[in-house]
């Protein structure tokens, strides 16, 4: 059971890393001006009954849900240094009952846990001067395993990956006008160093955003890749389920809309789905949030 618990912790860890850390680094190379901030409270949902196997094919699994209430915050410590917090204030991990289709008996009892999730703390430093044509920034992220692992009767429920990780990242981007609308594109590359038997990861991706209706509505699309160094323990030695598995690889495409209802307050919606993957949930995640953006 201890081993099962350990394994469970890894599988869920990755999905969190993939889907959730993406938010932290979705901001591109732009840092907040000193004293300015951005807060977002969002609900994030992932429910899946199939997953990508180690060969990249899709197999069924018991329906599993992970639901998080996230607080995301950016604050400009200086014009070139921004601190970022992304934490799951409340996380729920659910697995369905498995019933016999023949006699309706419960074969495996479903289970659920509620707890705090993992927290990411990051610092982003702009290598270029504010207002640069092509800004470049570097970031360091610390993943703090505040979530729980190995919970539930079978030890397969968790709200975090149970490991500290450190991620170094570089972002580059450019803002420009597109048919009289504001637009931007950015790209990033990162190396994620993980502990407790998890393999290190190489992450990279790109984002394109377009502001319409006088930049009241921002539409963006994000493409993210994660490739495992596969230098950790075997998956069977690191117990994790769903989004927290070890040696997970992933290509995801997300679309997001941010609508400013006032000058500073708005709502956002995000849809992210895996285009391909290995040992990870094969289902889209959804999030919906409200934000305050003080520039």
């Amino acid at each position: 059971m201890e081993k099962l618990t350990k394994l469970s912790s890894i599988a869920i860890a990755i999905l969190f890393s993939v889907f959730i850390t993406t938010d932290v680094f979705g901001g591109g190379p732009w840092t907040k001006a000193k004293g300015k901030y951005y807060f977002k409270l969002s609900e994030w949902s992932l429910k899946f009954d199939q997953h990508y196997t180690d060969s990249g094919l899709i197999d069924p699994n018991i329906t599993t849900g992970i639901y998080n209430t996230f607080l995301y915050a950016e604050y400009g410590l200086s014009d070139r240094l921004t601190t970022i917090f992304n934490g799951s204030l409340f996380s729920r991990n659910v697995m369905n009952n498995l019933r016999s289709a023949t006699n309706n008996d419960i074969l495996v009892q479903g289970d659920a846990i509620n707890a705090i999730g993992d927290i990411d703390l990051a610092f982003k430093y702009s290598l270029s001067k504010p207002g640069a044509q092509i800004p470049i920034a570097v970031s360091v992220l610390l993943g703090v395993p505040t979530g729980v692992t190995g919970k539930g009767e079978f030890g397969n429920l968790q709200t975090g990956d149970g490991e500290f990780n450190q991620q170094l990242q570089i972002d580059i981007g450019k803002g420009f006008n597109f048919k009289s609308n504001s637009a931007y594109y950015s790209a990033y590359a990162a190396v994620n160093n993980r502990t407790k038997g998890f393999s290190e990861e190489f992450r990279f991706g790109a984002e394109f955003g377009l502001g319409i209706f006088n930049s009241r509505l921002w539409l963006s699309s994000k493409l993210n890749f994660i490739r495992s160094f596969k230098n950790g323990e075997l998956s069977e030695e690191v117990n994790s389920t769903s989004i927290f598995a070890n040696n997970t690889e992933f290509t995801s495409l997300g679309v997001e809309a941010n609508l400013y209802l006032t000058e500073k307050i708005g709502i956002s919606a995000n849809y992210t789905s895996a285009l391909s993957g290995r040992i990870i949930a094969a289902a889209p995640s959804y999030s919906f949030g409200i934000f305050i953006d003080v520039n």
Partner: peptide
């Protein structure tokens, strides 16, 4: 602002309802 809060609460309720333990069926 009011609409934003209402929408957030509505979505939270939807997610909560969606997060109950359901049933999967096995052809056995």
């Amino acid at each position: 602002m009011k609409i934003a809060f209402q929408a957030t609460i509505f979505v939270s309720i939807l997610i909560s309802l969606n997060s109950c333990i359901g049933d999967d069926f096995l052809e056995d």
